[in-house]
Amino acid sequence: MARIWGRTNCNFDANGQGRCETGDCTGGLNCQGWGTPPNTLAEYTLTGQNNLDTIDISLVDGFNIPLDFSPTTNACRGIRCSADINGQCPSELKAPGGCNNPCTVFKTNEYCCTNGQGSCGPTTFSKFFKDRCSVVRVEIGFLVN
């Protein structure tokens, strides 16, 4: 699986050192890991289960920018998350340039669902994201030709 995310309000020097307001990669222009939340994720898997390619948009790391993740042909449909999540973000989750996921903010099992602990059921916050972007964690598969 691969993850792609947008970074916002970045400033880098000639050596590629600097910071981004959202999606920062530990101060580097070239990411060596995952971006710092909040960041909207586009994810894809090539030749995954049953030899299917899958794509999804995930808000598991919060939200910073709208995404449209679409193929360049009409072989399958694309997905989009274009709601004004930053403008409607609950005050507890607001972050500069984005809207954090509740796990980042509260760090409890109720919101993080780590190792099968906690209720891991829907919460007010998960419903907030799901109501605005129904593509959250929905995968769309298509056969590889």
Rank of each mutant, 00 (worst) to 15 (best):
N39T: 13
F142A: 13
G23K: 03
N39Q: 12
F12G: 04
V105W: 05
N11T: 14
F142D: 09
V105C: 05
T36L: 12
C31F: 09
T47Q: 13
L59H: 08
C113A: 04
R19T: 15
P66S: 00
Q17N: 15
N74W: 11
P38C: 09
G23N: 03
G27A: 07
L93E: 04
F128E: 02
K107A: 15
I55P: 03
T124H: 12
C113D: 07
A83K: 02
T36Y: 04
G78V: 03
T124E: 15
D61Y: 08
A14Q: 14
G33N: 13
P96T: 03
Q32W: 07
T124F: 07
V105R: 08
N109Y: 01
G18V: 01
E43I: 08
G116V: 02
G6S: 11
K94H: 10
G141F: 03
G48Q: 03
I65A: 12
G23I: 05
E110T: 15
T72W: 11
N74Q: 12
R3Y: 08
N145Q: 14
N115E: 15
T72M: 05
F106W: 00
T40R: 09
D84L: 09
Q88D: 15
L59Q: 09
C113Y: 04
N64M: 02
I57H: 04
R19H: 13
G35T: 11
I140C: 11
L46G: 10
S58Y: 07
I79E: 03
E21P: 01
G48K: 05
E43N: 09
P102I: 06
N11I: 13
Y111W: 02
P96C: 06
C20M: 01
W34A: 12
N109K: 05
S91M: 02
C113R: 10
C20A: 02
S58F: 02
R132A: 02
P102L: 00
R137N: 15
K130C: 00
S119I: 06
S126T: 08
A95W: 06
I55A: 05
V136L: 11
T104R: 12
S58L: 03
T73K: 05
N74G: 14
P38W: 04
D13V: 06
A83W: 00
S82T: 14
E21A: 04
L143Q: 14
W34M: 11
L41Q: 09
F12P: 09
E139W: 12
N15P: 09
I57A: 07
N39W: 00
T123S: 08
A83F: 02
R80Y: 14
V60W: 04
S126H: 07
L59Y: 02
R3P: 00
G35M: 08
R80C: 12
R3K: 11
I4Y: 10
L41D: 01
V60C: 04
N101C: 09
N86R: 05
F69G: 07
K107F: 08
T114C: 10
G28Q: 12
K107M: 13
Y44R: 11
C81T: 09
R137D: 15
C25S: 08
C89S: 09
S119K: 02
G35W: 03
E92I: 08
G98Y: 04
K107D: 11
R80E: 15
A95H: 01
